[in-house]
Design a protein around this nucleic acid. Sequence first.
DNA 1: CACTGTTCCTATCAATCAAGTAGGGAAAAC
DNA 2: GTTTTCCCTACTTGATTGATAGGAACAGTG
Lengths: 154, 154
Amino acid sequence: MHVSARSDYALRAMLSVAAAPEHLAKAADLAADQAIPLSFLQGILLDLRRAGLLHSQRGVDGGYTLARPSTAISVGDVLRAVGGTLTTVRGLPAESATYHGVAARLGGVWLAVNGAIEAIVDRTSLADLLTGRSVPAPPAGTTPPVPMTKQEME
Amino acid sequence: MHVSARSDYALRAMLSVAAAPEHLAKAADLAADQAIPLSFLQGILLDLRRAGLLHSQRGVDGGYTLARPSTAISVGDVLRAVGGTLTTVRGLPAESATYHGVAARLGGVWLAVNGAIEAIVDRTSLADLLTGRSVPAPPAGTTPPVPMTKQEME
DNA sequence: CACTGTTCCTATCAATCAAGTAGGGAAAAC
DNA sequence: GTTTTCCCTACTTGATTGATAGGAACAGTG
């Protein structure tokens, strides 16, 4: 339920690389463009390179380039690269959370939440966010995304 | 994307209260039932009482009772009582996250995620989790919950 | 009413992890 | 060899998690 600063910065940096001329950008330019602390950003860019989402080039005229076209990099790819598992419960992946007794069915809620999040972030690419072609729907949940019987309030 | 220990413990404690005989349970019993550190749980129970979800009674035969029927308390109610805003970005509510330049549309992703989460947690009550009547659907996202054009991978 | 046992309530302190800072080292081009 | 840029490690700060101790309110009993 919380997006860390690392994840937020990583996405903004990837978008900035995708929008850069020649798709090449220096770390300092990315930091200035999106107001991200430079030294902190460097560690994030390292993770993105290790995950195979970025290529790096040292020296003059160096910088970072996308390893794949922006249409083939999803928001979920970036989030998993810097944050590991998408949904965690008490620091552990949502699948490995075990419950006992009356809380037995609580794990199913976290799995449903994880599935709902994946459905959004894995279907939204960097190109979608740049072109605005596939902007997510407004948050007003008029149609329930998960088949679920409506509870009766009183 | 992360469920804190506080939120997890709060839900398990509420379920344990709802399942207790007479719907009354002592803090020590809740801690033992769900393997929660007692002193940490006491702070959580205080938040739940301040939020109007629990009533407390001191002295012999004291303990905690639900302030409303378990059918009228949703998972979202409990999460908001102990964690404040449901979806946060860098510690701030998802709505107040502002983006500039190429990242302008990123806020829409967080709002869509927040809406998807709300659609699940606000429609699932404590009673649903106890009876298993409305268990969330499996996480395999075969049907996209948010209307969104499918991106072309390559 | 005083006493006693139970329970909730609060304040304080150590351990751990995210967030941000600082500085030196290594590759590429001129 | 100098400059530019990426690469890596160590450090500081603050929030979260968890443990400990003591105080305050309630109910029953003599």
